[in-house]
């Protein structure tokens, strides 16, 4: 069977964007803000995958440290200074 290989990256793009939307839904639903931060990090990983598939390696190099390194640290610090559970 001949698969049209040109279509597969587009399928992965659609799939990972849908998955990142699902992760965003989980972030909004989550009451524990630490777990919500970790889910935000997962969504950032999916976004960097999207950038990689759309052939933007410069954006990938920016987005991975920002979304995996810096933003979770700032959010953890904010959670530590305020409250862990959403009311």
């Amino acid at each position: 069977m001949q698969i049209d290989v040109l279509i597969i990256p587009y399928v992965v793009i659609i799939y990972s964007s849908l998955l990142s939307v699902f992760m965003t839904y989980l972030v909004v639903r989550e009451r524990d803000l630490l777990i919500a931060t970790i889910l935000t990090l997962t969504q950032g990983v999916f976004y960097s995958l999207l950038y990689l598939l759309l052939m933007a390696p410069d954006l990938v190099l920016t987005y991975i440290p920002v979304s995996v390194g810096v933003t979770p640290l700032l959010l953890f610090l904010l959670v530590k200074k305020t409250e862990r559970f959403e009311r």
Partner: peptide
């Protein structure tokens, strides 16, 4: 169940992409 299914499908799709064309044809 939804999380496990979606993550495993993602891994499957990624490995298909890499093994078939090496992220090439999107250019």
């Amino acid at each position: 169940i939804a999380l496990a299914l979606s993550l495993s499908l993602l891994v499957l799709a990624l490995s298909l992409t890499i093994s078939l064309e090496g992220l090439g044809p999107i250019v």
